[in-house]
Design a protein around this nucleic acid. Structure first.
Length: 794
RNA sequence: GCCCGGGUGGCGAAACCGGCAGACGCAAAGGACUUAAAAUCCUUUUUCCCGCAAGGGAAGUGCGGGUUCAAGUCCCGCCCCGGGCACCA
């Protein structure tokens, strides 16, 4: 029964659909996956029947584990994939009736995939888009490893809940996604029609563009300048101090030894507390800075709420017009001075709370009287022409830290030479592959460092003894471009064929979970832009349309192994079969909505499929394809059939609400069974055939079976999608609802297209309408042809 | 705090452009078939009121207002649930 999708690369009507696969460590699918796949597979089968060649490939995000490494199958990282697990998963997919082009399977854990990851990395390194720098990172002393921000739970390690996380400064590799921040934002124009609004909003917030100015304050007594970023230059006459982030490089110079200890405390405390429950704290450095606009001398403070990673790491505090500054300055008795008044009000003094809206500038020297908008623009220009600042745009997004001190991941292809410094691995030496014989302890630095055969190399430049970089790449690197590799999974001279990519990209439809809105979906957009700049693809964006399905929830949260709330589809398929299982998840809710796990309606889906099967098999003797319709029942059945085809086709073409498509099929079956004894052979044949075809995308096995029962050959998804005849689908007449004062009182059947005047006349002649209208004055009659008549009385 | 979703029967849901609220399914109740059970089929099923009945009436889509002949749908103001971001200067 299993059909494998094939792909004709030169198809005139190619469609490229990618359905997200997020594999499950044990090699088992859970119901969340079944839902994703049922949606994607139904769509793929439908598109196929509509004459598109659908490329519906499969990939394994293998977390960098070499597939051939039998020694590592167990007791390594729980997310590891193994050969057996992948094979097991394939068996499960086949059992669910989900088919793929196995020839284009991509495994991101294979050396060939490493090769191209590394190739891209080196291209980026050449262009200055990959760089190494010291950065502060979360460090768990117990695990002796770096933690991602998401792995820090309430200041402690996720695995050691009582061990506070420390901040350590480590050399790490970064990809310069910030260089593309503007494009990532601007190019949203190209995709906003096809992406869900909420994903775009999340990305917009994440990129966090803000327009303002950078202004230099001069350090009193030294010529140094402190550059601050502000979105509100217009408030600069209200700046009553300058505040530096604790990590700001100037802080060391400005504070005494004992104050330095306090600064360290500020840094440590911030590392262990979320911003929400961190009080604003700070200390004065004793130094002063000169406001370049007013010439005023203001104190320099250090504040724990100023972030080194955003803007310049220094701010001018304007307590009268910024809530955070207000809070800080009130606490330390720093003066508060209002310089913006509401456009229709007076300057609020004394200042009781920050006024953060735009207004009119006051007490601002020559700028007094300007609006905030004008002030922002003109003061930035002024700063620029006088050499103490300029208009500036700042982004919230930070460079992508790709270093991982883990075994599972593509080795970063760099060499540390004591003489030459950082040396890239020459392209001819790629791929750098992971050693297979390795002990994973879960402790200490990367386990790779304990493997001399891996670590010790000759410097490609000078030949001296050198060491490899032991960091591996974040596995999000793998997922950033896997869907390009699908097009050309076995290419060994390039990541993929550029002509093919130009033909197939952007992806027509990407289907995945919303959980990746700001991780995977932003990284893959970035990667596409880099590949475009390298010159191997023409497109700016990877995906024209994105569909985010809802999660499958159990006990209020998404199914996941760590929560221990997964439901195994095996039990259901064991009992009812995979078609029932698929039908069930599709019927329970429309695909974009979260779905709370409730198994109760599964019986209904099973009954439905059984009834379809019985209806077809018990009537098969009578079916005479091509015979004309004879009875009234025939005509009714045909009408319902064509209405159903219309409905299901429409659902597929517009919004994929498969729950209503399935409901329509159920209605059709109900109608057919109630008319059954009066149906003649021709209609039975047509209905059974089209029913099987429409069932194909949702319940492929039963559909194939019925198709064979009907004596037809060839797989259902190779048949053309059934057409409908709008004439046959038409009801005999329009049912018009008769309302009096907006309440339904009666209804009537009239020929389609009956005019307004005629409708009004008929309505007013209706007994039930007359009973309501009697003795009252008819004020107005609204008639909507083929729909309703509303008689308004007083 | 800000930004997205969502709130409709006992339950999952439908109503796509402002035009019959509750399609379809589950569960429940009653009935048919059966020695019996399972399976299957039929009937009822938003709530309340009037009626022996046929039938009729009223209310009803989180809450309060509004627009309209007509509002689950549009507008204003709230409440609750879920998600994302959160000292971003």
């Amino acid at each position: 029964d299993q059909s494998i999708y094939a792909c004709d690369w030169d198809s005139p009507k190619p469609k490229y659909y990618v359905v997200e696969m997020f594999p499950y460590p044990s090699g088992k699918l859970h119901m969340g996956h079944v839902r994703n796949y049922s949606i994607g597979d139904a769509l793929a089968r439908y598109m196929w029947m509509r004459g598109y060649n659908v490329f519906h490939p499969i990939g394994w995000d293998a977390f960098g584990l070499p597939a051939e490494n039998a020694a590592l199958k167990r007791n390594t990282h729980p997310r590891h994939w193994t050969v057996e697990n992948i094979a097991n998963m394939k068996r499960q997919l086949i059992r669910l009736g989900i088919s793929y082009d196995w020839n284009n399977e991509v495994s991101t854990c294979e050396p060939e995939y490493y090769r191209w990851n590394q190739w891209f990395f080196l291209k980026m390194y050449e262009r200055g888009l990959a760089y190494r720098k010291k950065a502060l990172l979360n460090w768990c002393p117990e695990c002796a490893t770096v933690l991602a921000n998401e792995q820090v739970v309430e200041g402690c390690c996720w695995r050691h809940e009582t061990t506070p996380v420390e901040q350590r400064e480590l050399d790490q590799w970064f990809l310069k996604i910030t260089a593309y921040a503007g494009q990532l934002l601007d190019d949203m124009k190209q995709i906003e029609a096809g992406w869900p609004e909420r994903v775009l909003t999340m990305q917009r917030n994440w990129i966090g563009r803000s327009e303002g100015a950078e202004i230099d304050f001069t350090l009193e007594g030294r010529g140094d300048r402190i550059r601050v970023f502000t979105t509100r230059v217009d408030t600069i006459y209200g700046a009553t101090c300058v505040i530096l982030a604790p990590e700001h490089p100037l802080v060391k110079d400005l504070v005494s030894a004992e104050a330095a200890a306090e600064v360290k405390l500020l840094i440590d405390e911030r590392a262990t507390k979320g911003p929400a429950d961190l009080e604003k704290k700070g200390l004065s450095t004793g130094a002063y800075a000169i406001n370049p606009f007013s010439g005023e001398r203001v104190p320099i403070w250090v504040g724990n709420f100023v972030l080194m990673g955003y803007g310049t790491g220094a701010i001018m505090a304007v307590p009268a017009h910024d809530e955070r500054d207000f809070e800080f300055c009130t606490q330390y008795g720093i003066p508060i001075r209002a310089v913006i008044r509401p456009a229709d009000g007076a300057l609020a003094e004394p200042v009781k709370e920050a006024f953060t809206d735009y207004g009119v500038m006051e007490n601002s020297g020559p700028w007094t009287g300007l609006t905030s908008e004008e002030g922002r623009r003109r003061m930035a220009e002024h700063a620029k022409s006088n050499g103490f600042g300029e208009a500036a745009i700042t982004f919230r997004i930070k460079d992508w830290g790709v270093s991982r001190q883990r075994y599972w991941g593509t080795p970063i292809p760099m060499i540390h030479c004591p003489k030459c410094g950082l040396v890239p691995v020459p392209e001819k030496d790629l791929p750098v592959v992971l050693p297979l014989d390795i002990a994973i302890t879960g402790k200490g630095r990367s386990p790779l460092e304990n493997v001399p055969e891996f670590m010790n190399v000759e410097c490609p430049q000078c030949g001296a003894a050198a060491r490899r970089e032991s960091d591996t790449m974040d596995t999000f690197v793998d997922s950033s471009w896997y869907f390009y590799r699908y097009l050309d999974a076995h290419n060994s001279t390039a990541p993929f064929d550029s002509k093919r990519a130009a033909q197939w990209f952007p992806i027509d439809q990407y289907i995945g979970g919303v959980t990746h809105a700001i991780l995977h979906l932003i990284y893959s957009r970035f990667w596409t832009k880099v590949m475009r700049d390298i010159g191997i693809i023409p497109n700016d964006e990877p995906t024209r349309n994105l569909f985010t399905q809802g999660m499958v929830l159990k006990d209020g949260s998404a199914m996941s192994k760590s929560k221990g709330n997964v439901v195994d589809p095996d039990d259901m398929t064991e009992k009812y079969g995979s078609d029932t299982c698929r039908l069930f998840v599709l019927f329970a809710a429309p695909p974009e909505r979260d779905m709370d796990w409730q198994e109760s309606s599964v019986e209904g889906q099973f009954r439905f499929l059984s009834r379809v099967y019985r209806f077809v098999t018990r009537n098969i003797e009578r079916a005479t394809p091509g015979a004309p319709a004879e009875t009234d029942a025939d005509r009714k059945a045909l009408r319902k059939l064509h209405q159903t085809v219309e409905k299901v086709t429409h659902d597929f073409d517009s919004r994929w609400h498969f729950n209503t498509s399935i409901a329509a099929l159920m209605e059709l079956l109900n109608e057919l069974t109630s008319l059954e004894k009066d149906l003649t052979g021709g209609v039975i044949a047509e209905c059974a055939e089209k029913f099987a075809l429409m069932l194909g995308p949702f319940a492929p096995y039963v559909a194939e079976d019925l198709w064979a029962e009907l004596g037809r050959t060839g797989p259902v998804f190779r048949q053309p999608w059934p057409a409908f005849d709008p004439e046959l689908a038409k009801e005999e007449g329009a049912e018009v609802v008769l309302q009096v004062n907006g309440k339904v009182r009666s209804r009537m059947i009239v020929p389609f297209g009956t005019g307004r005047d005629e409708l009004e006349k008929l309505a007013l002649a209706d007994d039930k309408v007359r009973a309501q209208v009697d003795g009252k004055q008819v004020v107005k009659v609204i008639a909507v042809p083929d729909k309703l008549v509303n008689v308004v009385v007083r």
